[in-house]
């Protein structure tokens, strides 16, 4: 599948934004956040800024962005509509969380409840994004049990790294957050490697023979319908060179997981937590963008078999 930068930005940035919101809810409930009046509202608005930037980037993917509002209507059947609704709905408890913090402080039950509600909505939104991909039967690398937990883990991972960075600058419980970041980084790395070994061992869902409705026989493409690329081949027939794929996977392991894990674990031990947590967050940001690029580039679509390409 062709990796469109608008969609890569969408899923990476919303991962950071909604991941941060989810952890704000949890940390507030446990009383681990700085008790200053401005901390909560500023961080919540930052998180919403990340999420909104992602959503705005995603409208660049649309052929008719001015009609984007129509995408809320079909939530009964469409995960894309559900994602839009969940994203919009998350704003309500999040703004309530910020206002309640500003007026009455982080410790009162209303703020804590709104924080938890924000966290749940944020995770639901990430889940809906994942389900858009996981529900697409023609793409075996997406339509499997790895996609949903993967998105939730990478969202939680990027969110906690962003929170660690913020806590580093505001003298909060940075070591605690960095410790959680280290654990999530390790879980994320394991999940990503499990995903890769799963898709590498998958057998294609269809063969050229079954695509043509033949129960037996050997089929080879003879003539293509057209000799230049069309929409189907550009969008669904994207191919990635095997050696690039190997290099990019190593890059993802290094930049998205190994460097952030190393930085976060040192920060958790109290070694320059302000600087190292910033390194961890920035490295994870770049690494997860490459990870998302690969998530698309490695995905194959069954329609490509009609053109003799792998699916």
């Amino acid at each position: 599948m062709r990796p469109a930068s608008s969609v890569l930005l969408l899923t990476t940035l919303t991962g950071f934004g909604y991941g941060l919101l989810a952890w704000m809810g949890v940390f507030d409930m446990l009383g681990w956040l700085p008790d200053t009046r401005s901390f909560g509202p500023v961080v919540i608005l930052t998180a919403l800024g990340f999420a909104s930037a992602g959503l705005v980037a995603s409208t660049m993917h649309l052929g008719r962005p001015e009609r984007a509002w129509r995408a809320f209507s079909q939530w009964r059947s469409s995960w894309l509509a559900r994602e839009g609704l969940a994203a919009a709905a998350t704003n309500l408890p999040a703004l309530g969380f910020a206002i309640s913090w500003w007026i009455s402080g982080p410790d009162i039950p209303l703020t804590v409840a709104l924080g938890l509600c924000t966290g749940v909505m944020a995770l639901l939104t990430i889940g809906c994004t994942a389900m858009i991909y996981a529900s697409l039967k023609p793409i075996r690398q997406w339509h499997n049990a790895h996609t949903l937990p993967g998105y939730l883990i990478y969202g939680a991972f990027s969110g906690i790294l962003l929170l660690t960075l913020i806590l580093g600058f505001s003298h909060g419980a940075v070591r605690l957050a960095a410790g959680i970041g280290t654990v999530l980084g390790i879980i994320g790395l394991i999940a990503k490697r499990a995903y890769w070994s799963y898709i590498d061992s998958q057998t294609p869902m269809v063969t050229l023979a079954s695509a043509l409705g033949f129960s037996s026989g050997l089929v080879r493409p003879l003539d293509l319908p057209h000799f230049t690329e069309n929409f189907i081949l550009r969008e669904m027939g994207f191919r990635i060179a095997r050696r690039h794929q190997r290099k990019l996977r190593r890059l993802v392991i290094l930049v998205a997981f190994a460097i952030p894990i190393a930085c976060a674990s040192l920060a958790a031990l109290g070694v320059m937590p302000e600087i190292l947590s910033a390194f961890a967050a920035m490295s994870a940001g770049m690494g997860l963008f490459i990870e998302r690029w690969l998530f698309f580039a490695e995905a194959t679509h069954v329609a490509a078999v009609y053109y003799g390409r792998a699916a």
Binding site: H61, R67, P138, E235
Partner: peptide, 22 residues
Amino acid sequence: DICIGCKLCSWACPYGAREFDE
């Protein structure tokens, strides 16, 4: 008249039957 051009339907079709009008 109401299609937003998100292309998700073309991803969901295994037969490559839908083509996007750029």
